Amino acid sequence: MSEISFDDFLAVDIRVGQIIRAEPYPEARKPAIKLWVNFGDALGEKKSSAQITKHYQPEMLVGKKVMAVVNFPPRQIGKFISEVLVLGVPDQDDEVVLLVPDKDAPIGGRMY
């Protein structure tokens, strides 16, 4: 594992967002869900494509707060533009489990 400086860490903007819409994304190369995430007044609504279909269904995601990197450049995922990277960790089967705030946190709040 290589070390980074604290300034490198601060360059990554990770914020709390709330999923306001979620739809299956069957056209994706790997099974995915299209997400629309609200980051509040400062950043507004951003889109993401997330490979989280093993543990999550679109209808169970609406209203859920998640952590996401908001300062990566947009990325084309098939016909969908992903604007943020919703964060997760692998479970024992290497399937994604979302990172979520452990207590109620305001949307748009920055991780530090």
Rank of each mutant, 00 (worst) to 15 (best):
D94S: 05
F72I: 14
L87I: 03
P90T: 02
K46C: 05
D91G: 07
Y56S: 03
S48W: 04
F6Y: 14
D41Y: 09
L99E: 01
Y25N: 14
V62S: 05
E95C: 10
L98S: 00
P106G: 06
A42Q: 12
G40S: 02
A11H: 13
D41T: 13
V96P: 06
P26I: 01
P101S: 00
R21H: 13
Q76E: 11
A22R: 06
A105N: 03
L98E: 00
A11Q: 14
F9Y: 15
R75I: 15
E45V: 15
G44Q: 03
A11G: 14
A28H: 04
V12F: 11
L43V: 08
I77P: 10
K65C: 13
G44W: 08
I4T: 11
I14D: 02
D91L: 03
V62T: 13
A28G: 12
D8M: 09
E45S: 05
V96K: 04
Q18G: 05
E23Y: 04
M111E: 04
G63C: 06
D104F: 06
P58Q: 00
K103H: 07
R29C: 05
Q92L: 09
L61S: 06
S82L: 09
M1F: 11
L87Y: 02
I14A: 06
D7N: 15
I52V: 15
G17I: 00
L61Y: 03
E59I: 10
L85C: 09
K79P: 12
F6I: 15
R75E: 14
G63D: 00
V89Q: 03
G88L: 04
N71W: 07
V70Y: 00
E45I: 14
P73N: 02
I52E: 10
Q57N: 10
Y25I: 04
L35K: 02
V89Y: 02
V86D: 03
G78T: 09
S48N: 08
V62L: 04
I14L: 07
F9Q: 07
A50D: 12
F39I: 02
V16D: 05
L85P: 06
G78I: 05
D93S: 13
A22L: 07
V66W: 01
K65N: 04
L35I: 09
G88M: 01
V96Q: 13
W36A: 02
N71C: 10
M1R: 11
K34Y: 01
D41G: 10
V37T: 07
E3I: 13
F6P: 10
S82E: 08
V62P: 09
D104T: 11
K46P: 09
I4Y: 08
R21M: 11
A50W: 06
Q76A: 13
N38K: 01
I52T: 08
L61F: 07
T53A: 09
I14G: 09
E83I: 04
P73F: 01
M67Y: 13
E23F: 08
R21G: 12
S48D: 04
L85N: 05
A68D: 09
E23I: 01
Q76G: 05
L43C: 08
S49H: 04
V100Y: 01
E27R: 13
P101M: 00
L35V: 07
D104K: 08
G44L: 05
R29I: 15
